[in-house]
Computed example of a mutant assay.
Amino acid sequence: MIDDEKVPEFKLDEFVYGGTTISSRYNKFKEIRAMVKALDAVSNEVWRDSIISIWCDSKAEAIYTVECAGMDAHLGWIANALGNAFYEKVGGHNGLVVRGETAPEEWVAPAWKGDDLYYATQEKDS
């Protein structure tokens, strides 16, 4: 039996968009589109140009791994910019990790539009 969730929607293993290699585990169009939208939303050109690759783990859904070059001192800023971009442009993410060349990786916790309303209601009821 074929698992439709794992069937690629296009044939490329990866492609380059604005100098950044973009790929996903199962080559799903919505994941590729989300990564392109997030990259386009990073307004700082220097940070944007330092992002050499972004990968979506289709199996885990909306979890991203980002590799950067030459910007170890700014990984936290880049991670926050991308986290905000995914939140604003595609509704959120299940987490993302940003790796540099030598600096410790930066993790951005999952964030989805609407979650803040849920948690605010839970705190109010407590």
Rank of each mutant, 00 (worst) to 15 (best):
K11P: 02
K37L: 14
A120S: 15
L82N: 06
A60W: 12
A120H: 08
E5P: 01
I22W: 03
G100S: 11
A81L: 03
E67K: 04
E106S: 07
E88H: 09
I63P: 00
I32Y: 12
A73N: 07
F86T: 01
V7E: 07
G114D: 05
D49F: 02
T21E: 11
G19P: 04
R99G: 07
V16C: 11
A103D: 10
A81F: 01
S24H: 04
E31D: 13
K6S: 06
D72K: 05
A60P: 02
E14Q: 11
G83Y: 01
I63D: 02
V98Q: 06
E61R: 15
I2Q: 07
P110E: 11
E31N: 07
S43Y: 01
E101K: 05
A62N: 10
S24P: 03
K28T: 03
R48F: 00
K124N: 10
T121A: 14
A120T: 12
P104Y: 07
I63V: 12
I22M: 10
L39K: 02
E106A: 05
Q122G: 01
L82W: 01
G100C: 09
R33F: 15
E14S: 15
Y26H: 15
N94H: 14
E101S: 10
K30A: 12
V46Y: 00
E5F: 13
A79K: 00
Y17C: 09
G18H: 02
I2F: 08
T102E: 13
E9D: 08
K113T: 04
F15R: 01
E31K: 02
N94M: 10
K37N: 09
K124R: 15
W55I: 01
E5L: 12
A41E: 11
W77A: 09
C56Y: 03
W107T: 15
A62T: 08
G91R: 10
H74A: 11
E31M: 06
L82C: 02
I2N: 04
D57G: 10
